[in-house]
Structures are given as C-alpha cells and as structure tokens.
Design a protein around this nucleic acid. Sequence first.
DNA 1: TCTGGGGTCCTAGGACCC
DNA 2: TCTGGGGTCCTAGGACCC
Length: 397
Amino acid sequence: MNIALTTSSVDPVNLQSRRIAHLDMDAFYASVELLRYPELRGLPVVIAGRDEHQPVIQADGQRHFFRLRDYAGRGVITTATYEARALGVHSAMGVMKAAKLAPDAVLLPVDFAAYRHYSRLFKAAVASIVTRIEDSGIDEIYLDLSDLPDDTSVLAIRLKQAVKDATGLSCSIGIAPNKLLAKICSDLEKPDGLTILGLSDIPQRIWPLPVRKINGIGPKAASKLASLGITTIAELAQTELSVLYRHFGRSYSIWLYEVSRGVDHRPVIVDAEPKSMSRETTFERDLDARRDRQELSIAFTALCEQVADDLRRKGYAGRTISIKLRFDNFQTVTRDLSLVVHTADPIRIRRTAGECLRRVSLDKKIRLLGVKVSGLCAASSTPTTETCRQRELPLIP
DNA sequence: TCTGGGGTCCTAGGACCC
DNA sequence: TCTGGGGTCCTAGGACCC
C-alpha cells in the first residue's frame, strides 16, 4: 500500500474543518475482469465493446482471448489495466487508435451486470463503517468522516481493508477538508493509494499539479488557460480574478479562483434523486433517414421502450421528453417537449419523441439516436402534476 | 475505419406573469 | 403609447465527469 502522510502533525485534518474522503476503485472494470480471468494478471488488458469478443473455450480446453487487433468497428476504450496504460492506451480513446498502440493487448467485452454487482459489494462494505456516503458513479464515492471519532489514517486503512475483503479489489483513498481536494488526493498515489492532506499542504502538494487535475476543468477550459500561459494550479492561483473575468464567465471565473486555492464548500449529498434517465445508441453504420427509415424507426421505438422500462423499474415518471441525434459529421442536435403530466408509458414517450423528431431536418446521415426523460418524480401513487411541482420547490437555505 | 453511453450542471433567450 | 425589474418555465446547446 502506498501511504502518503504529507504533514508532520499526527492528524493533519484540522478539527474545525470537515474531513472528507474520496474513495476510488483502481481500474475498476478491468480489475473485476481479472478476478474472473486471473491468468491475465500482469498483461495489458482493455475493456471495450459489447457481446462479441467474448473469450471462447477452444477444442483443447484452452481459453482463447481476442486481441485489440481483432477489433473492427466503432467504439472507445472503457477501461485499461495499468499495463495497457503504460502503452499509451486510455479510456475514451478510440479502439482503432488503441489497436495501433497495443495490438496484442487482450480485449474483453463490457459486462455491466458484473461491475454493478461489485459496485454494490464495495459500497455495502464501506457503509458498514461510514454512513454519510455520496454515490459518484459506479466506482467512486465521497464520504463525510467529520463526525467520526476515529483517527484519520486508521479509519482509511480500515475502509481499504473492508473493500478488499468484500471484493478482492483494491481502491485508492484521498482524505482532505473538502471534496475537491479529496478527489485530487485519491489520484495521487494510485493504485492502492492513501493520501491525507490538510489546507497547509496545498502549496506543496496541489499547486505543482496541472490544472486538468481539478474536477471540472476539462479539455476546453484547460486549453483556454494554456493559451493564457496557465498550466499549473499554482499559476491559476496567481492569476488575478479580473484576468479570469476577461476570458471566462462570471461564475466560472469565481469558481476557478476558489478551486485554485483549495476552496470548496459543497456538501456530501447522501440522498440524491435522479434528474433524468436516457438511452442512446450509435449505429454500426450511419443511417439515411429515408433509405433506412425502417431500421431507424425500430431503433427509435426500442429506445423509448428501454427508457420507459428503466423508469418503471426504478419507480419514476417524467414530463420532459428529449431526443438527441448525432449526424455523420458529429454535429449533435437535441429537441425536447414538456408534457402536462408525468409519464412512464412507452407509447406516450414514443409519440412525444416522434413530435420532437419532426422538428429536426434529416438531410444528413444519422450516427446516433437517443431518447431522454427528465423532470422526474417518484411514480408512487400515480402523482399529479401538482404534487410533483411541490416536490420540485427549491430548498430554502 | 477517429470520437460510447449514462449522467449533471450551466448558460442564454424568449414567453409569460406579477 | 414610456419605462421597469424579478421570477419561473421552456427549449437548445455545450462542458464536463465516470
């Protein structure tokens, strides 16, 4: 285990401040696959695509794995083991590009059911120790440890062990006075890392990092900052707010100014409700609205049925129906329509989505089609619009 | 043979109401 | 016959995250 205690004090997290942990599973999908196929340990392995490329048992009883070079078609890398990352392969990279970098890397299809299973296991293990947990995707959570009496590093080691015992998987934990810093921290000593730091560690540990390490600074903002000569968090922290105002919106400027100084007051949200549910699909080949009308229509209806099914299984209904199209030139358009009453009915969703679709001119070939339902409320006791509106009233601080 | 799928949040203009 | 401002909802698009 890599443990980095970056201050000399016994417990670096100040008593008056919060104590927030970010727990992140290491190369989660790939690690779950390695539990299943331990013979792949130490090899470059990537997870990409669906059903095809399932390992096959050969006549001699040996298991045959597909290689990245066997892949043909659209798709991106979902996860790569650290060995594959060493070859330059990263998640979100096009599979074809990855195949050029690491043609011999083992290719495995995505198995979300398995990952969700292990996700539930590790979250349950953590929940047996800490109650204030915020879900932040399938493989990471935030924890509010402020009210616990335990020593920070003792607690962290206990959490890591509980996750390991429940799943056989390792995770990395960052603990800091807020979510922003905890998130940066959990990434510093990956894999199997533990990093604890306080506000006084910011200049030494945080400022040298590239701005891109800040959760919320993406490729666009980073390149804009780079054009201003700002590449590290230190350089961002040294930039006058008035300079940021000239290049970014008001609220984003203030946010940049604060995060560069390690300021983040967001609470750990324990009971978040979903805001939307959606399904989308990228076609194997770009479809023509006229010539492939039948195929498009079938896919469109299937997406509506899937969203409706998701809503019903999880007990929600929504009143804003949206569609999304991506054309062959990657241009993306959306249309939406709000209903008076909430619905989870596939027919109604299909009809409304169809009305949205009529507002799009379909002169280019279609690459992607998606359907989304938002403005959700709990479907229990078939609520009226009025009861849902009440639920949506803003919280008074 | 570039570029998945499921999300959240923000911005911004116009409608509409008070 | 001009001049508002605040607030909310609707719609479209975009950045960003895992």
